[in-house]
Design a protein around this nucleic acid. Structure first.
Length: 423
RNA sequence: GGCGGGUUGCCCGAGUGGUCAAAGGGAGCAGACUGUAAAUCUGCCGGCUCAGCCUACGAAGGUUCGAACCCUUCACCCGCCA
């Protein structure tokens, strides 16, 4: 197996490390236990969360033991890093549900078990739930000089932009405690995370040294932004691209990746896939030589759909893309192909009476009626590939493809389907 | 506790009694051009039963023919003083 550290460096995944040589030595001398924390801020992981998660997997493939730590406790408090105001607090039940969902998702990418390189899924609520305030203050708090805490970037930034509550101020203590706890329980000696976590991670190292005289490592990933400056995995719609198929369909994931800017395709391949160096570099070259083929984007999109939703989804998603973007006449498609293609698109069921076009478009694509009407006015609304000019028009019998489907489209990319029971 | 400043649409931010659904920028959407790309240009960008109406400028009241703009109270934030 190739040297993990060298692979990470080639992929551009290493922003900062503590003593690199010592880390390399530890990695070379046998399975090292490492961890990365994931706070439950939503019901699903998103594309950006795959960077650290896949990094854990890379370590695992390299013969090490990863711990994916769900932040049941830290998520309860809210990390002030990179935020300008206090987080809205989430209640405990919601968090518990989220932790469960995130764990399920993480299980798909890591081999979890009891073996020496099997991953562990942990939740920091396990060692904080019963912790008393007094022991926290005595055993943990006394090791944290306030002057150092204040100096941390995440805190000082907040002090300048309006302050932060004690709750958030204490976040770094909780995270530090996690490191110590995982060191004690599992011999964890490396914490990885986004570069914005550097302060929190090194705080953990300090605590570890003080309470356990332990020596351990830190490694952070660069905070990757795409060429337009936004975080990786943010959809053009401004929102996140989620892994949960109910939140972002496999088709939408595929389309999002297929549309990645040429300049970002190589970076995405490195960070979000396990495609090897030789092939990635060949794809980089292909992008330069024949950009219109989008070989890198295609590979990226297929890879991730397979990783996230399973290999069987790839074909379906590709068929859907071909049908919906092929430029061919939708009416020409046979029922089975059409149904398969449309299965990936958002759909709306039409019961009895057929409502007018705006109504269908807005409900299927989640637009307000004003937006749907505007789309028609702007000439960007289509029914079965033909431009719609009258927003009040009601689809007629012959519009129903195979008697069942109406293909609704707004602009080039948003496709939805209205479906009614087979006649 | 005292004094002063602030709270505007997804974000930033102008507006300080009618011409305000609110300048400008960013983000986003669409059209043209392309490669389902980028850049560029153009249009859109609160909702609706859409030539009109409704809801909105921290919250609630008030003054006024008329309030984002004036007054009162409340909440939160910032600064200075104690």
């Amino acid at each position: 197996m190739r040297d993990v550290l060298a692979d990470l460096e080639w992929r551009g995944l290493v922003a900062q490390t503590t003593d690199r040589e010592a880390l390399a030595k530890d990695l070379a001398s046998g399975p090292l236990t490492l961890y990365c924390g994931f706070d439950p801020t939503a019901d699903s992981l998103h594309l950006g969360s795959l960077v650290p998660l896949f990094a854990l997997r890379r370590f695992q493939l390299g013969g090490h033991r990863p711990i994916a730590l769900a932040g049941g406790a830290t998520g309860f408090i809210g990390d002030p890093t990179g935020r300008s105001t206090d987080r809205v607090m989430t209640d405990a039940e919601t968090l518990a549900v989220r932790v469960g969902k995130l764990s399920d998702q993480m299980r798909r990418f890591l081999d979890v078990g009891d073996g020496p390189t099997d991953a562990i899924l942990a939740d920091n609520l396990d060692w904080t739930r019963e912790l008393s305030v007094l022991s926290f203050l005595r055993d943990i708090g006394r090791h944290f000089p306030v002057n150092q805490m204040l100096a941390r970037e995440s805190v000082s930034a907040r002090l300048e932009s309006g302050g932060l509550s004690f709750t958030e101020f204490a976040y770094q203590l909780l995270q530090s405690m996690d490191y110590v706890e995982l060191y004690r329980r599992h011999g964890c000696r490396l914490q990885v995370g986004g570069n914005d976590q550097w302060g929190n991670i090194t705080a953990g190292l300090d605590l570890l040294r003080r309470v356990e005289q332990g020596s351990a490592h830190a490694l952070t990933f660069p905070l990757v932004t795409d060429s337009s400056g936004s975080k990786i995995g943010k959809s053009t719609g401004g929102g996140n691209v989620w892994l949960d198929p109910d939140m972002t369909t496999p088709y939408a994931l595929y389309q999002f990746l297929l549309n990645v800017d040429d300049r970002d395709a190589g970076t995405h391949l490195r960070l979000l896939t396990f495609v090897g160096q030789e092939e990635v570099e060949a794809l980089d070259e292909a992008t330069v030589q024949r950009p219109q083929e989008r070989a890198a984007q295609r590979r990226l999109a297929c890879e991730l759909v397979a990783l996230v939703h399973g290999p069987q989804e790839v074909g379906r998603v590709q068929a859907a893309s071909a049908a919906l973007f092929g430029g061919g006449d939708l009416a020409e498609l046979d029922e089975r192909t059409l149904a398969a293609a449309l299965a990936e698109a958002p759909s709306v069921a039409v019961p009895g009476d057929v409502p007018p076009y705006v109504e269908l478009l807005s409900s299927a694509l989640g637009l307000s009626r004003s937006e749907a009407r505007r789309a028609v006015k702007e000439g960007s609304a289509y029914l079965n590939g033909a431009k719609v000019t009258d927003d009040a028009a009601v689809p007629v019998e012959s519009d129903w493809l195979h008697g069942r489907f109406l293909v609704l489209r707004r602009g080039k990319r948003s496709v939805a389907v209205a479906e009614r029971p087979r006649p």
